[in-house]
Design a protein around this nucleic acid. Structure first.
Lengths: 138, 138
DNA sequence: ATCAGTGCAAAAGCTTTGCAGCGGT
DNA sequence: ACCGCTGCAAAGCTTTTGCACTGAT
């Protein structure tokens, strides 16, 4: 089992293990966010002895190192994870096919500006979730 | 035990019970959203035999009748409930005191307009969650 | 009297944790 | 050889469900 992310992991001060390399690879290949179970199911087919709790611990570790971002969409009650690209993470969720479409360019500044005009709240971050129908479902 | 919401409940086609009147009263008196457990703890002090599962069933029923709205904020993993006032429900969460401030006037149109300019997604609803520091914590 | 509503207990679903053994450095 | 990582099993937490009894109409 080769470990393509060995340097990346040691640079973050954490050990390079087979499981971590597999999960990092899966995270890189995904086009959207995934739940711990999604990742687990994919990882099992590559490395059958892997355990769900290892995935959870790993994702939590990656999160603490800012390698992945965590989110939760209101419908699912499941935490979703994806690589941190240092951009805001907002999503459009299709109400029919349930697919999640990451939204890279969010008009954040419009929101923050408008909100700050009528409230005494110091905004540090925000989450936006958009629901509707995707191009193929509408 | 008087039942101030009897007419309201029968108008929605559901029976007026002591427990439902208590919870409706609690919902009216709150200034923000509350979890099922929050409501349960308040209800128990007024009606000790009440059960958490009754609260959940009631809130789900109220939700199906559009009497309450459900939401979940990303930090908590708990569903929060509040009376439906037919306005969008967005929240500002203080990162220090954890209090939740409902945001009545959201610049929704700005978001929807900007998003529709660069995506082929038919927007039906959206959720906005703002994190930062409230006036007394910042 | 009927049948929806309730309390209780158990289960379900997602996530976390304790512990002993394994594996990377 | 050390100590962090992992697998396994059990527990934790929120929410749901089955069932028999209660209470509103």
């Amino acid at each position: 089992m080769d470990k393509p992310y060995k340097e990346f992991l040691t640079a973050h001060g954490i050990k390079s293990t087979t499981q971590r390399n597999i999960v990092l690879d899966l995270l890189h290949e995904m086009d959207g966010p995934a739940s711990a179970e999604d990742l687990y199911l994919k990882a099992v087919s590559l490395y059958p002895s892997v355990n769900l709790s290892t995935i959870y611990r790993m994702l939590e570790l990656f999160h603490s190192k800012n390698i992945v971002v965590k989110n939760m969409l209101s419908e699912s009650k499941k935490t979703i994870y994806e690589l941190n690209t240092d951009t805001h993470k907002h999503y459009m969720v299709c109400m029919k096919c349930k697919r999640i479409f990451p939204l890279e360019h969010c008009p954040c500044f419009l929101i923050e500006k408008a909100v700050s005009e009528y409230s005494d709240f110091e905004i540090r971050d925000h989450k936006l979730e958009i629901m509707g129908y995707c191009a193929s479902c509408k």
